[in-house]
Amino acid sequence: MRVLVKGAGVAGLTAAFELAARGAAVTVVETRHSLGDNASWMAGGMLAPWCERESAEQPVLDLGRDAAGWWDAVLPGQVTRAGTLVVATPRDVGELDRFASRTSGYRRVDEDEIALLEPDLAGRFRRGLFFPGEAHLDPRRAMAALQDKLAERGVEFRFGVDARHMAGFEREIDCTGMAAGDDELRGVRGEMLILHAPDISLSRPVRLLHPRFPLYLAPRANHHFMAGATMIESLSAGPITARSMMELLNAAYSVHPAFGEAAIVETGVGVRPAFPDNLPRVESQGRTVAINGLYRHGFLLAPAMARQAADLVFDSDKPAEHADETHCQRRSA
């Protein structure tokens, strides 16, 4: 079966993998000229379904639970399974209890345990939550590695090409995010920074709770850190605002003052495609299966969505269970 995957973000790449693994002849077409410059490229790369449950509904945990396993199996060496550390400044320590009351899969850690987990944070936080089952990856390296892997398996990539010029495919998978133009989709703007802080090492993503400016710092190679991310109801992909940057930097500085000496290597803005319930959908219409609405959970939920899409393509009789479930839940609520 010849399948065209439109869009080379995390949804498109994972869908291409699942389809190729089941024997489809897959072509990935992307209007941009390379992998970058989409929402996935700006992602944090945290595979943190338990933490996300704080603000997300149950399907995010159910669908995201196996994400680390999927990425680890497909791209050995790309995933770091070191959990997530959640901390708060003494003044906001009440936020930890609130976070704990909304989540599961953590254990409470004290100052000594925080120092064991992250020696650079020794003496900085008295209490925290540790989510041992979580993991993280570097989205850009993972996407590049996945592209290589797909190419090895005979998946053809066409960059800088409009999908309308592609013909001769039995099925299409639409993974174009905001560009899909779905009426129900909205954009949620996210701003991020990449900091280079040679004095600091972190082994795992650290989340700083704050009533207004929550922050995560996701470690990347060579003392680089992604600091993110704002959540603004807007389609605008214009440059990061001074206010957002100050908020992110302030929060990073309160995690560790050495971030004051960091070099700001990059600022980025992405627009997350989201449905009104902030849950992803896999929908089949005619020859096309659409994956969309991954919101802030691209790397976390793309594997499950890719499997559902492949199920639909290869066994059209079987409905995509989870997608249907989430729909029904919302409609009956």
Partner: peptide, 9 residues
Amino acid sequence: YPSPAILAD
């Protein structure tokens, strides 16, 4: 709110 849908409800 967790999502606009929940906000509306």
